[in-house]
Amino acid sequence: MKPKTWQKVLGILLIVAALIRITSKPAMDHPYYAADLNYPLVIAHQGGDGLWPGDTMFAFQNAADLGVDVLEMDVHITKDGILVLMHDETVDRTTNGTGEIESMTLDELKQLDAGYDWTLDEGATFPFRGQGVTVPTMEEVFTAFPDKHMTIEIKKTNASMAKPFCELIRKYNMEDKVLIASFHDDRLVEFREECPEVATSSAKNETTVFVLLTKPFLGSFYSPKFFSLQVPEESGGITVMTPAFVKAAHERNLAVEPWTINDEETMKKLIAWGVDGLITDRPDIMMKVLGR
């Protein structure tokens, strides 16, 4: 290609880049991130799975009593169309049952012991076995904690839960109290279309794009359709969490909420970097770090 042709191509690329930069916009403010919240947010992963059986009413109540800012949980849909909470797609790891949640009815799930396999000593003891810990519904949580902020992850399912989930959020007036997350881009896109007034975090592909753009300091070119980046410290050999990443996210008006941070040293480091919250199995440790 002749030099003049290269110059023309470069000129066009520079013009396109300038237009993208000029037209890019940061995320809008959302009521979920209210100014009166106590930042950085203590976000209890599954209600604090390092302290008690995760994704249970027992965990959520104890986390609330501890004074955490946000309850984090995982939502599935049952065979009979009820939204229930559990981390895995099957009940095998945490209960005394077997099978996929999506192939079971709510009545079948309610018969299971949701504290059956929780242990802190590699199976030597199971302190919550037979204690009446059951699989909760999303509606039960909304009813019990109407004033609590929640991060709710849409898990992998065959059936869509966008419509019933949105209807439930609206029924309990939780539009400004919940942040919806998912690793599955298609599920998050359909939820946003169904429930545009509710805040969401970034899906997997959105996170990847933003992280890669921040490496050559091009984060300002990105116009996010989400309000939060819930990310690991590193992924696929790429370091995600750095002070520069936090700065780039904040310039796009995005909250940064790393997961799953369970040790005091890492908590202190990330808090010093200015993160907006930490997703943790050990909310008790973070509460101590923050002096609450």
Rank of each mutant, 00 (worst) to 15 (best):
T5S: 08
K8T: 14
I12E: 11
A18P: 03
I20F: 00
K25W: 13
K25Y: 09
H30S: 02
P31M: 10
A34V: 11
A35K: 15
L37P: 00
V42P: 02
I43P: 01
D49C: 07
W52L: 14
W52K: 12
D55P: 03
M57H: 01
L66Y: 07
G67C: 12
M73K: 01
T78N: 04
G81D: 11
G81C: 13
L83Y: 01
E89R: 13
T90D: 12
T105C: 09
K110G: 02
L112G: 00
D117E: 13
D117G: 10
L120Y: 11
F126R: 04
F128N: 04
V133C: 04
M138S: 00
V141L: 14
D147M: 12
K148C: 12
H149P: 08
M150Y: 03
T151D: 08
T157A: 12
A159N: 07
K163H: 06
P164R: 09
K171C: 06
L179G: 00
I180E: 02
H184T: 11
E190G: 03
E190K: 08
F210I: 03
L212S: 08
F217P: 02
L229T: 05
G236T: 05
I238V: 14
I238A: 13
F245R: 04
H250K: 10
A255S: 14
A255K: 08
K268H: 10
D276P: 13
G277V: 09
I279N: 10
I279V: 15
I285V: 12
V289I: 14
R292K: 15
